[in-house]
């Protein structure tokens, strides 16, 4: 893999990974509180997955980490500095975020989309520098989108479109990438394609990746660190082996499951066999 990187051109030294953490974080919309006094730390240079059932606040947490929403209480810190005290541009140069199923205007080509990633590096006088051009080409190459670069997004398949959006985030050249369910609406092959791409970005360039994932097995397989949310707080955080347990599945996902070791990787694999049995005897709906 290292040789491949050298073959494909100059690989810049990975930037010093930023430390992203939150303390006492309370998040909500209107009059509902979704996350309450949560503390979380993102290990730099690693892949972290945030998991949990629908409505547990995974996306909300990701938005707060990306500075897209103001916390009701507590703070998010980037390298020890309160994230809202930093200039918007500086944050955007260090932290890229890909929201869930983003939409591009009709007719926008892949290359034009990727070029948008250069926004925080540009100014009115410098709108398309040589390094902008290089970063966009790099991003398109890494996502294998060079061949489709001049196609409008609306003519592409779901997997290709997701890769195009990732190329935008890559062109942003941030040391940390936050992705909200990057695999939704993708079939299995395309899910793996996206996850492997993120894996390569981490292993070859040392980028910190934080993603919200629905699929526990994918999360266990493709991340070093997992954060399981439950009841507005962190239920468990640690390696996949530490986090993916029958207790987690029962308490957080309301599912009875066996956890077996993946015969290939030894990583935990969850095999659900039923809904959680209630103390009263019935099954939960």
């Amino acid at each position: 893999m290292k040789d491949l990187g050298r073959l494909m051109g100059k690989v810049e030294a990975p930037p010093e990974p930023a430390k992203l953490r939150a303390e006492g974080l309370t998040l909500g919309y209107d009059d509902t509180t979704v996350i309450e006094r949560l503390a979380v730390e993102v290990p730099p240079g690693r892949i972290t997955s945030v998991v949990g059932p629908n409505g547990c606040g995974k996306s909300t947490l990701l938005r707060a980490l990306a500075r897209l929403m103001r916390p009701r209480g507590g703070s998010v810190y980037l390298d020890g500095k309160e994230i809202f005290s930093l200039p918007t541009r500086e944050v955007a140069r260090r932290l890229g975020i890909l929201p869930q199923s983003p939409e591009a205007p009709e007719g926008l080509t892949v290359r034009e989309l990727a070029a948008q990633g250069r926004y925080p590096h540009q100014s009115w006088l410098s709108q398309w520098s040589a390094s902008d051009e290089r970063a966009v080409e790099e991003a398109l190459r890494k996502t294998v989108m060079l061949g489709l670069a001049d196609r409008p997004l609306d003519t592409l398949s779901g997997g290709q479109r997701q890769r195009a959006w990732i190329s935008m985030a890559l062109a942003q050249e941030t040391e940390t990438l936050l992705l909200d369910e990057p695999t939704t609406f993708l079939d299995m092959a395309h899910q793996l394609e996206v996850l492997q791409l993120l894996g390569r970005l981490n292993s070859e360039e040392g980028r910190t990746v934080v993603m919200v994932l629905h699929d526990l097995n994918n999360a266990a397989r493709y991340s070093h660190h997992m954060i399981a949310l439950h009841g507005g707080g962190v239920y468990a955080a640690g390696t996949p082996e530490e986090v993916v347990t029958p207790e987690l599945l029962r308490d957080v996902f309301h599912v009875e499951a066996d956890i077996v070791a993946d015969p290939r990787t030894g990583l935990p694999l969850c095999v659900p066999y039923g809904l959680r049995r209630h103390p009263s005897g019935g099954e939960e709906g």
Binding site: L68, I97, P99, P105, L113, G117, P120
Partner: peptide
């Protein structure tokens, strides 16, 4: 002069904010 920003805004508020708009 603000075409650049308008381009970013057409990707949606979240993406635009993430890009530093």
């Amino acid at each position: 002069l603000r075409a650049r920003h308008l381009n970013a805004l057409t990707l949606g508020d979240e993406v635009a904010a993430g890009l530093g708009v």
